Computed example of a mutant assay.
Amino acid sequence: MTDDILQVAGKVALITGGGAGIGRATADLFAEAGIRLAIAENDPTRLADLRAAMPDALIVDADVRDRDDVARLIQEVEDRFGRLDILVNNVGDYLKITSFFADSTEEEWEALYGVNLLHMFRVTKAALPLMKKTGPGGAIINLSTVEAFRGIPRATVYAAFKSAITGFTQSLAVELGADGIRVNAIAPETTDTAQITADSKVPLANRPHIGTWFPMGRFGRGEDSAGAALYLASERLSGWVTGTSMVVDGGVLAAGAWMRMQGKDTFTHLPIIAADGYTDIE
């Protein structure tokens, strides 16, 4: 961007899990806006790709579930930049754990907790001293999901941790208001990422239905949530926005169960498909 109308150029952002999907789309857009980047990633292929594509960024091989890695990550950010203005807690995954709650295990609960909530606590707490030293001002952006605001069977524990992000975001926003640090969340619907390649997996027979499943007529893309993140990172645009969750879902949550019937200006709240392409059906 040639003109810094967002007033973010030169700021420093840390993005966790920035090697693919929403995280990578956010990194690309932030770089375009002139934001200096630190990215945490622990996948070797993605690390190599990031280092090749973003030679000026700080790319750190770190598992943000690990407290020692988190401490080292924040120290590297401080050593390189001396400041931190924006934190994007992007990491999250359902880990392909789907079952009825009665059949779930405590080991699965622990795994889901670590990747969806505990790391957010650890990274945020570790980053706050540097953000406060950088301030006043700053933005923390937590990636959640639309499933935090509706029931999702066979993913009860995952949804519980995502719902907890809402409470964490709201309460932390109140705590940090005096420091000028805004805390918000982004809650996407099904988005094509490395975890869910939804669009391409829809069976050919059901592809005409894609336009009926979402009021906006398509699955989400990484850049949809990245745009929301850039808005929330810009104090000029969202300087009085804190403690909120921005739903990025193509209108699905507003629609509830209602879907447009194929080729008609008529709606139904009854199921009209046998398979969606990304839900495992035997």
Rank of each mutant, 00 (worst) to 15 (best):
A198V: 02
F149L: 15
P136K: 09
F214L: 01
I141S: 10
T156P: 00
T191R: 01
N184A: 10
A164L: 04
A139C: 07
G222C: 15
A159Q: 03
G135N: 06
F168R: 00
M131H: 07
I152Q: 13
I141D: 10
E223H: 12
V183L: 04
T166L: 14
A205P: 01
I165E: 08
A148L: 12
D224G: 00
T134W: 08
A233F: 14
T134H: 08
E223C: 06
G217C: 15
P208F: 15
G239Y: 06
V146T: 08
G167Y: 01
E147F: 13
L204E: 09
G167C: 04
G211Q: 12
E235R: 07
G220E: 10
G177H: 00
A194V: 11
P208E: 15
L176D: 04
T166P: 02
P215G: 10
I186V: 11
H209V: 06
F214S: 01
F168Q: 02
Q170M: 10
S144G: 15
R150K: 14
I152S: 09
T244D: 06
G137R: 07
R150F: 01
G137H: 08
S171C: 07
R236Y: 06
R154W: 10
K201H: 14
A148Y: 05
L204D: 09
P129K: 09
G211L: 04
V241Q: 05
G137Y: 14
P188L: 04
V183R: 03
V146Y: 01
K162W: 05
I210L: 05
I152T: 12
G151T: 14
L237C: 10
V146I: 15
G135T: 03
P136W: 07
G220V: 09
T191I: 00
R182N: 03
T145C: 13
D199G: 12
P203N: 08
D179M: 01
G239C: 07
T197F: 01
T244L: 08
G227F: 11
R221I: 11
A148W: 10
A185E: 00
Y231P: 03
R182Y: 06
A226H: 11
V157T: 13
V183E: 02
T166F: 02
L232K: 09
A233G: 13
V146C: 02
L172A: 02
A228M: 12
A198E: 02
A229Q: 06
G239T: 03
P203I: 04
G180L: 00
A159V: 13
G135W: 00
G217D: 09
D199E: 14
F168C: 00
W240R: 12
F161M: 06
A160T: 08
Y231C: 08
A233N: 14
V241S: 05
F168M: 12
V157K: 00
D199N: 11
Q170R: 15
S171K: 02
S225P: 07
A155I: 06
